[in-house]
């Protein structure tokens, strides 16, 4: 049992200027009239922040809490609940390996191990050069092609451990076959 203690009395470093720029705040405010409470706008607000910075920093969480009039701990709670949201900087490309049943049966564990070996990082970590991040996700909705692996939003199907190095080294590994969904790009007409 490790005796390492995380000290929560200490506040994280704070930048001088707010990280949520006026433009971002304006983007978030658009969502507010949609819901009865300000708290309910937290998820779309987090999407806005993550889309802009690639991750949700401690300071962004605090500023969001102030903006939506909730506790900073509530924002922290939601951000960490969804693995989609990152609390630390993300690499340019995010390699996502499925950890659900179908992929697990088809050998997702060895694919994940190979990814860790090739990239030299663990889960939810980013390589030193900032190129790649690695994460696992519950079902990626491609069970018929298990085991599967995503690089950003591009799906690679039927991945074998020996394919991993080729996929990661391929410069076009994140290129989409079809156009990206615009679901989270904001409110229509905003």
């Amino acid at each position: 049992m490790s005796w390492k203690v995380i000290d929560r009395n200490a506040a994280p470093d704070k930048a001088e200027a707010p990280v949520l720029t006026d433009a971002l705040v304006e983007k978030i405010r658009v969502f507010l009239p949609r819901y009865e409470t300000k708290r309910a706008a937290l998820l779309p607000a987090l999407h806005v922040v993550q889309d802009h910075f690639g991750y949700v920093s401690w300071q962004a969480m605090q500023e969001l809490a102030e903006l939506l009039e909730i506790n900073a701990s509530d924002v922290f709670d939601v951000v960490t609940f969804y693995t989609y949201f990152w609390t630390h900087p993300r690499g340019e490309k995010v390699v996502t390996v499925c950890r659900s049943t179908a992929c697990a049966f088809m050998g997702a564990d060895s694919v994940l191990d190979e990814c860790k070996k090739v990239l030299g990082i663990g889960e939810h970590e980013t390589t030193a050069d900032g190129k790649f991040s690695l994460q696992t996700e519950e079902c990626l909705a491609t069970c018929d092609h298990a085991p599967c692996l995503y690089v950003n939003e591009r799906c690679h199907k039927h991945v074998k451990p020996e394919d991993v190095r080729r996929i990661i080294e391929d410069p076009n590994n994140a290129k989409l076959d079809i156009e990206r969904s615009t679901l989270f790009d904001g409110v229509k007409g905003a």
Partner: peptide, 9 residues
């Protein structure tokens, strides 16, 4: 269980 860093219990 956690608290927000700097906003101790």
């Amino acid at each position: 269980i956690d608290v927000f860093p700097g906003k101790a219990l």
